[in-house]
Design a protein around this nucleic acid. Structure first.
Lengths: 200, 200
DNA sequence: GTCTATAGCCAGATAGAC
DNA sequence: GTCTATCTGGCTATAGAC
């Protein structure tokens, strides 16, 4: 059941083939921004990856920032889909939380190379002009979702627990990237699962 | 006793006044890279902040990357000093760990604005050519230090606990920055202190 | 050792033919 | 709607006078 759950980015990566050019550009941008970061990725990079001539990009997006915005929105859509899929697959909130962490930890190799797609994006956005307004809604998705699960468990401190579980993932992702060690994600996943089991 | 402990960056920020030009440049770069990020900070920015003409920068550093390297080394030196100060001020490893988290959490306002100085730097470095080799030694300082404290507590799982405590700080820092909410750091600091007290 | 002027490059963005 | 050619600005890095 867990097998069908896709992490954010997977869908866009999968069908970046033939569709509307706008969709191809967003899919290509999603990939390039993740691997290279916002600042190092040029519009020429994105255009080339999407198989679109550079000048044509500006027919779909007025500025580079508009593309970044579209990428963030794409991440939000995919995140919601993933969280909804987990909810559909499991009834017990404990199982849902453990599945979320497990799915994310399953991306250890990717995280070791490029970091968490959401975390690295949010930190980059935070140093940009309109960054915070874009980053917060993206990060709010998993935090709010986790909070609802802890509430369903009857925890009065659901918000703190939600912050903690997402913080542990994001922090472990950062260490995983810095040390280039996917093993960290796997170990932490087990420890988080144990921790969730100990909660009332 | 805790009052005299400075977080990394504080020393350089404090005496960026008059010294050798090289030191002034590194101190200015440390500040600018933290606030603006590596990619958005120009050599002109750094030169202006240090009160040094642009062309003169190249007498001290051959390339921009050399300045980045000097900044990372400066962070490592300051991190070691902070950790040594905590060790000198407390004998009990539990107190040391709680003090570390408390000192870092005390920077909540700064973290909300610009992120954790080490975390944001490491993530940026990870997307650069020679980044990983630079970032890992910096992040290893607090992790190894925390591991030694947990070992002194007689914990066989000291490494996992060290990863967890630093991951919780880094993850909370990321959420604090994204949500622009310093309160998150303060709450998590209390929760981590409670958690450490429950450990054998 | 210090600083001015500028070279050289490359990015984002535009003009305008088709 | 599509694409080529190009403009414009800003950045790293250098040349060379003092």
């Amino acid at each position: 059941m867990t097998d069908s759950i896709q992490v954010p980015g997977a869908a866009a990566r999968a069908d970046a083939g033939q569709q509307g050019k706008r969709e191809r550009l967003v899919a290509a941008a999603l990939e390039m921004l993740y691997q290279q970061g916002i600042e190092k990725t040029t519009l020429a990079d994105i255009a080339a990856a999407a198989g679109v001539p550079l000048g044509n990009v500006y027919y779909y997006f007025k500025t580079k920032n508009d593309i970044v915005q579209a990428v963030v929105e794409s991440h939000i859509v995919e995140a919601r889909a993933m969280l909804a899929a987990i909810e559909a697959a499991h009834d017990d909130p404990r199982d849902r939380l453990k599945t979320l962490f497990g799915v994310l930890a399953g991306q250890g190799e990717l995280v070791a190379r490029y970091g968490c797609p959401h975390g690295t994006l949010c930190l980059e956005l935070d140093k940009r002009a309109d960054g915070p307004a874009l980053a917060a809604p993206l990060m709010r998705e998993p935090v709010d979702w986790a909070e609802r699960q802890f509430q369903a468990m009857g925890r009065a401190d659901a918000r703190d627990l939600a912050i903690e579980v997402i913080a542990r993932y994001q922090g472990t992702a950062l260490l995983t990237t810095t040390f280039r060690d996917p093993e960290l994600m796997a170990r932490e996943s087990v420890r988080v699962a144990d921790w969730i089991d100990t909660l009332g």
